[in-house]
Simulated scan of single mutants.
Amino acid sequence: MADDGRRVAVISLGGTIAMTTQTDAGATPTMSANDLVTAVPGLADTGIRVDVHDFRQLPGASLTVSDLLELATYVETLDVDGVVITQGTDTIEESAYLLDLVTSGDLPIVVTGAMRNASMAGADGPANVLAAIRVAASDDVHGTGCVVVFAEEIHAARWVRKTHATSPTAFNSYPGPIGYVAEDRVRITARPTLASLAINLREASSPAHTTIYTVGLGDDGTLLNAVGAQAHGVVIAAFGAGHVPKACLDVLSDLAKRMPVVLTTRTGSGPVLQRTYGFPGSESDLLERGLISGGTLDPVKARVLLQLLLMTGADTDRILHAFSTV
């Protein structure tokens, strides 16, 4: 087979894929990376050599930026043909994009997990791990950046989103997957343009507090003002193509003078516009007030990028450049 002799590292961070139900209190992470790999039927038939690494044993919601920066450093020390990271699905869309921004080189990095823990009927972890290992071992994946493999679909880290709380097909992306696995073969059908941001993970040491503020109907800016008082940077999840209530404008203008404020859309896909609308609170008005366009990044991804930039001490010009190139 084409994958014979390939060597892939499987690194476990915990999450549902590593959980079993031990008590009436519910599922908790108990399985090691070796347990996960051993449970995969048909893996030996691929000819891929697998190294296992236990890095964390946490639910996805408890992973931190520091955990992932340490993981990225660890990945760069491995002498393998590809890497699979298994983790909780709650934060896959964030961790995959963070790894995409800070890892260098052409090493395939694949993130996967499970929606059903190992104690449940129809547990999806083994199938996802097998597909992820095949993807990590494939020459065709080089040059796609970090990817998420779920339900035999391959999603670019920049676009992937968790769109359902419980479905085994919870992960989707717009404009769609960049490939899939079928009949044991990895097929790449599109290649994302990779941004060159040169974020040095070893410089990401400055403390930074960032958050997402979602604008709602009738919002008067009171809570936004309170949030801004505690933050070093804020991502605004705005209406439509980048619109907010007129009552929020004074607060946003003040915040934009003190910190980076990134404008995104809460819709989940599509771009923030620049000059289509001209009313107070429109995208053109907000950009004139000093807000930074998040472009096509959703609020979650924009916060990851903003967090890393602030942790590396980026100034306003560098932040503007970074968001203009992703």
Rank of each mutant, 00 (worst) to 15 (best):
A9G: 08
L223S: 11
L286W: 15
L43N: 02
G242Y: 13
T144M: 14
S66Y: 12
L308C: 03
T91Y: 11
G82C: 14
G125H: 15
D124F: 01
A190P: 05
T264M: 02
T73K: 15
T21L: 09
A27K: 11
D24K: 03
G233M: 01
T264H: 03
L306S: 07
D219P: 08
L223P: 01
R191A: 09
P260G: 04
S324D: 13
T312L: 10
D79P: 11
E203I: 00
A72V: 01
T103N: 13
S206Q: 10
R185D: 14
D184V: 05
I212F: 08
L291K: 15
G240R: 01
T16S: 00
L223D: 10
T214C: 03
H321F: 14
L223K: 12
S173C: 03
T28W: 02
A127L: 08
A198T: 02
P29C: 05
R161Y: 13
G176T: 07
N225Y: 06
P108H: 01
T210G: 06
L101F: 04
D219M: 05
G270E: 09
G26F: 03
L98S: 03
I292G: 07
G216A: 12
L306H: 05
I199W: 11
C146I: 06
D139K: 11
L305Q: 15
A39Q: 03
V186G: 11
L101K: 00
P168S: 12
A229K: 09
Q87R: 04
E288Y: 09
A27G: 11
